[in-house]
Measured scan of single mutants.
Amino acid sequence: MDALKSAGRALIRSPSLAKQSWGGGGRHRKLPENWTDTRETLLEGMLFSLKYLGMTLVEQPKGEELSAAAIKRIVATAKASGKKLQKVTLKVSPRGIILTDNLTNQLIENVSIYRISYCTADKMHDKVFAYIAQSQHNQSLECHAFLCTKRKMAQAVTLTVAQAFKVAFEFWQVSKEEKEKRDKASQEGGDVLGARQDCTPPLKSLVATGNLLDLEETAKAPLSTVSANTTNMDEVPRPQALSGSSVVWELDDGLDEAFSRLAQSRTNPQVLDTGLTAQDMHYAQCLSPVDWDKPDSSGTEQDDLFSF
């Protein structure tokens, strides 16, 4: 819950932080000083300027060897085509990944977070970031790969997607708890209302004896509580940590079903599988986004697919 609360507080303090972009060759504004600060901008989305290598189908939802083989196929196909790589912007948030063309600003792909089953910074092609997700059109699994400016960037994108998945799962947990509370309150309110109706004398007997209905007592009954809980029953509950912020979080049926399955089948359902080692994760978390744009010590960066 700490990640969720800190993310909400950060967004309320400075929503404009989320509009910064990394990996864009110096076009961005001043960047936060450390990885923790940038992680807090996830709610509205972190932007990464990358190059799209392509996509291939895979048979399993996750796995280092599986993704490595898929990336190898994608890279080989991209090299064989001889075409310049498409420059894209990857927007990562707890909602998922939005992929747009840098030149036309046209939407290429919009992947809900619950469809993503794996992401990684490839070991062999260490400047490549990739994720595996279920197609929104059918049940097939797709591996999408992107060329980053350097290994640090690939690791940073991988960690960002993993963190977005974690925050999304926490949102789901909060929403589920809130819905259970509202359902319980609604049920209790309905029981109270039913009890009051059972003990209320029939209207005919009131008229016969000349008694008047006590409207004041009726007004004191917990009807307002019942209506408050039943009027918006169809509205999706939102985490309290975000009250007053500009973010509107809505959970669709697909996300609810997917996270429910994860909660039942996995020990740590909030953790998205990645190909990063503990050492890689520690190294990337210690980086400032400013470091992502620094040239690798191995030599001059080449803006070309064939540089790796």
Rank of each mutant, 00 (worst) to 15 (best):
D2V: 07
L4K: 04
K5W: 07
A7G: 13
A10H: 03
I12A: 13
R13L: 13
P15H: 04
S16K: 09
L17K: 13
A18E: 01
S21I: 14
G23C: 08
G25E: 11
R27F: 01
R29L: 11
K30Q: 14
L31C: 10
P32W: 01
P32M: 12
E33G: 06
N34Y: 02
W35Y: 07
T36K: 08
T36D: 06
D37Y: 14
L42P: 13
L43S: 13
M46W: 05
M46F: 09
M46G: 04
L47C: 08
F48N: 14
S49K: 01
L50C: 11
K51G: 15
T56K: 08
L57A: 08
E59K: 05
P61Y: 03
P61A: 09
S67N: 09
S67Y: 06
A70T: 13
A70C: 11
A70V: 15
V75P: 08
A78K: 12
A80R: 10
A80L: 13
A80M: 03
A80W: 11
K83G: 07
K84D: 15
L90K: 12
L90M: 13
K91E: 12
V92A: 15
P94T: 02
R95P: 14
I98D: 07
L99D: 12
D101H: 11
L103K: 00
T104L: 05
N105S: 13
L107C: 13
S112L: 01
S112H: 02
I113Q: 02
I113R: 00
Y114T: 06
Y118S: 05
C119F: 00
T120N: 00
T120S: 12
M124N: 08
D126V: 03
K127C: 08
K127Y: 15
F129G: 15
A130Q: 08
I132V: 10
A133S: 14
Q134K: 15
Q134L: 15
H137D: 09
Q139M: 15
Q139N: 13
S140L: 12
E142D: 08
C143Y: 14
C143D: 01
H144E: 08
A145G: 14
L147E: 01
L147A: 03
C148W: 00
T149F: 08
K150A: 02
K150M: 01
R151M: 02
K152T: 04
A154H: 04
A156L: 08
T158P: 06
L159N: 08
V161A: 05
A162Y: 04
Q163I: 02
A164Q: 01
F165E: 01
F165N: 01
F165I: 01
F169M: 01
F171L: 05
S175N: 05
S175G: 01
E177K: 11
E178G: 14
K179N: 05
K179W: 13
E180Y: 11
D183R: 13
K184L: 12
K184W: 12
K184N: 12
S186L: 04
G189I: 08
G189P: 00
G190I: 09
D191A: 02
V192C: 08
L193V: 05
G194K: 09
R196H: 12
R196L: 08
R196S: 13
R196K: 08
R196E: 07
Q197G: 00
T200W: 03
T200H: 11
P201Q: 10
P201W: 02
P202A: 10
L203H: 02
K204R: 09
D214L: 10
D214R: 02
E216V: 10
E216R: 09
K220E: 01
K220D: 00
A221G: 07
A221K: 05
V226E: 09
V226I: 11
A228H: 03
A228K: 04
N229K: 09
T230Y: 07
T231A: 10
N232F: 12
D234K: 06
P237T: 03
P239L: 10
P239K: 02
Q240L: 11
Q240F: 12
Q240T: 06
A241Q: 11
S243A: 05
G244M: 03
S245G: 12
W249K: 13
L251M: 07
D252P: 03
D252R: 06
D253Y: 15
G254V: 10
G254H: 04
L255K: 10
D256N: 10
F259Y: 03
F259C: 02
A263H: 02
Q264A: 08
Q264C: 04
Q264S: 00
S265V: 02
T267L: 03
N268M: 04
P269L: 03
L272C: 06
T274M: 03
T274G: 02
G275I: 07
L276C: 07
A278N: 06
A278F: 08
A278W: 10
H282F: 00
H282E: 00
Y283T: 07
Y283A: 10
A284P: 13
A284T: 13
Q285V: 02
C286A: 07
L287N: 00
S288I: 02
S288K: 12
D291L: 07
D293Y: 15
K294H: 04
P295Y: 01
P295N: 08
P295K: 14
D296K: 14
S297P: 11
S298Q: 08
G299A: 03
T300W: 05
T300C: 08
T300E: 03
E301L: 03
D303W: 07
D304H: 00
D304F: 08
L305N: 09
L305P: 03
